[in-house]
Design a protein around this nucleic acid. Structure first.
Lengths: 139, 139
DNA sequence: CCGTATCCGATTTGATACTG
DNA sequence: CAGTATCAAATCGGATACGG
């Protein structure tokens, strides 16, 4: 499906001298990853599992706003993408553990950079939203 | 930038001895930011504007899959969050320029870390998806 | 040129109930 | 305990048409 545009050293923050077809920037995979992780719960799960493996109900209780459906769906999605593993212990009450794969762990690093930004600038964004009063009508 | 894997000095990846209310982790702002940027076009626009300010139609042509509605909506959203500015030139055919605010520019850095990860590991994720054959039913 | 308004289908999420 | 099934609601995104 998607073309194989490799050898893109660093995608961002360089001059774009003219309108460039976005494919050449190798942005499709980036956008793809963002859309996978940009749902309501993936990030939280990734971060939580980054600390330690967790059991299903442990996650369910920790997040406390998530429905079983979404917890399962999100975990399955992360598992499908190879970011999370799932281990079933055949105990009498069955218990299932989730944790980060090596790939998932590598993702945790850039994620933390963004997390730091978010924590640092969340108030700035809130302030901006409060200040905002519609598109500048040039009054 | 942070050190190599398994060494995250920040919000993430520390031991969670027990179910912790996520608020204490400061994760809500993180999740918030991800959801704002996780839509179909925000990232692309941020990156495009990171190179240079652009005019409305310039963006429209550069992206070439986006509808006017979504372009306007996404720009407005980024503007509301204080990441993008909007300047109207009162010329005879009106022209509007968009660019990154200082706040938006600071976001570009952690974004690039994630973008680099995405470009590097997109194939890994694809491979994982191909390998995946449903939840391990332990048959 | 730069939008907004409206309609519509597709996708996402939650609530609830049920099962091995 | 760890899910799945089903239904309804909200949101997202595109096409089209119109306005300043």
């Amino acid at each position: 499906m998607s073309g194989t545009h490799t050898d893109v050293p660093s995608v961002l923050a360089h001059e774009l001298p003219r309108p460039v077809p976005l494919d050449e920037l190798g942005l499709c995979p980036v956008s793809d990853v963002f859309r996978r992780l940009g749902d309501k719960w993936s990030l939280l799960l990734l971060v939580l599992l980054g600390g330690r493996p967790h059991r299903y109900n442990e996650l369910h209780r920790s997040i406390e706003g998530i429905s079983q459906r979404m917890l399962t769906r999100t975990l399955r999605s992360l598992e499908t993408d190879g970011l999370v593993w799932r281990r079933v212990h055949p105990t009498v009450p069955p218990s299932v553990e989730y944790g980060l794969t090596p790939l998932g762990r590598t993702l945790l690093e850039p994620l933390s950079a963004l997390a730091d930004w978010a924590v640092l600038h969340a108030t700035d964004m809130d302030a901006a939203r409060a200040r905002y009063a519609g598109p500048g009508q040039t009054p």
